[in-house]
Amino acid sequence: MRVPPRQGEPRPLISTRALVIVLVAIGAAALAAAAPDLAIPIGVGVAVITLLAQIVKD
Rank of each mutant, 00 (worst) to 15 (best):
P41D: 08
V48C: 05
T16F: 11
G27E: 02
V56H: 07
A18I: 05
L23Y: 01
D58Y: 13
A35T: 10
R6G: 14
I42C: 03
R6I: 02
L23I: 02
A34Y: 07
E9W: 02
G27F: 02
A53G: 15
G27P: 00
I42N: 03
T50W: 07
I21F: 00
A35Y: 11
G8M: 08
V24C: 08
Q54R: 12
V20M: 10
I21K: 09
I49L: 13
P36D: 11
I26C: 10
P5V: 06
L23Q: 07
R17F: 00
G27H: 03
A18T: 15
A30S: 03
D37R: 15
Q54S: 03
I14D: 12
A29V: 01
A47G: 15
V20P: 00
T16A: 14
Q7Y: 04
I26A: 13
A30P: 00
V22F: 07
M1Y: 13
L31F: 03
G27M: 02
L13I: 05
P41N: 11
L23V: 06
P41Q: 09
V44M: 05
A53K: 06
A39N: 10
R11W: 03
I40Y: 11
A35S: 09
G43H: 05
A29D: 01
A32C: 07
I49Q: 08
I42P: 00
G43V: 06
R2Y: 07
L51K: 14
